[in-house]
Amino acid sequence: LVDVLTDAGIKTSCLPLLHLNAVTDTAKIEAIKKQWLPLSQQDFVIFISSNAVKYTAEFLAKHNLIWPSSLPCIPIGGATAKAIQDVGWLLKHAMDVDVNVDVNVNENNESHNQAEKKPSAALSAYSSEKLLAELSQLDVSEKRITIFRGEGGRELLADNLTSRGASVNYCEMYQRQHPEYSREQFEQALGQNLTAILFASGETLENFNRHVERDGLQARVEGLPVIVPSERIKDLAERNGFKNILIAVNASAEGFLQVINQQLLK
């Protein structure tokens, strides 16, 4: 995100408000290994983020495990879709996981999958809510689904799919940590000529606001434009006292850049 904005000529700084680390607890690692045995029997899996793909691929390499090549992987977000493509797994979108495949043989005895189209990362749902809207068109009753995510994520997807008759498991591949900054570090990061604040997730917004409240800096930031990737995080920003909230076209770096160009630099 910083690189995209900088390349567009926008002076940008980054304050990390969420650190991710691979799971290291021995018991949790063994539990993840056990989930690999029935993984090939799942109807499809969902990756919450590109980090979920990254830490899963690293776990496979470290523990000499093999990913089921025919297992459909549904992403949330274009970056997640690209990550799935980059590791060579079977990328699918919500609307084509149940497509019946017709295989024909042409005059040269070459088989062609008439239903198969290479999915585009650009078509991926950019939030759990949007993915659920797409999945609502499908019958997930008795489907076996595994959600790859970090520890402590939202329950929205699993609760909805379970209520519709699906069997849902979690595979939690990484841990979240909220970094702490001193008042001096935090004020230095805010700088003197701040034009807007971008939040990539609800967790980063909440950790930012925790520092703001601790240091009594509400008056300094609450009037600034903030840019968020979804309606859900807009609501969270409002509850945290922000007044001027813009919603990016989507959660990609290009989505943030577009709203900056259209709303802040016009």
Score class of each variant (00 low, 15 high):
141 S>W: 11
221 V>T: 09
201 S>L: 11
176 R>F: 05
208 F>W: 01
171 C>M: 14
144 R>T: 11
160 N>F: 07
158 A>Y: 02
152 G>W: 01
160 N>I: 11
195 T>K: 12
160 N>D: 09
205 L>F: 14
183 R>Y: 01
214 R>G: 06
164 R>Q: 10
174 Y>A: 14
200 A>P: 01
203 E>V: 14
194 L>M: 11
180 E>Y: 07
151 E>F: 11
160 N>K: 13
202 G>I: 14
147 I>L: 14
154 R>T: 07
204 T>G: 13
216 G>W: 02
178 H>I: 11
149 R>E: 04
191 G>A: 04
186 F>V: 02
150 G>L: 12
182 S>H: 04
148 F>N: 07
194 L>Y: 03
213 E>F: 04
179 P>A: 09
179 P>C: 13
201 S>P: 12
196 A>E: 10
139 D>R: 07
197 I>M: 13
148 F>H: 05
203 E>L: 11
210 R>T: 09
159 D>G: 01
221 V>P: 01
150 G>T: 09
178 H>P: 02
195 T>S: 13
161 L>H: 00
180 E>V: 09
179 P>S: 09
179 P>Y: 09
154 R>F: 04
162 T>L: 01
149 R>Y: 03
173 M>R: 00
186 F>T: 09
159 D>H: 05
217 L>E: 06
216 G>K: 08
176 R>I: 05
188 Q>S: 10
149 R>Q: 14
157 L>M: 03
201 S>H: 09
170 Y>V: 08
152 G>V: 05
214 R>A: 15
142 E>W: 00
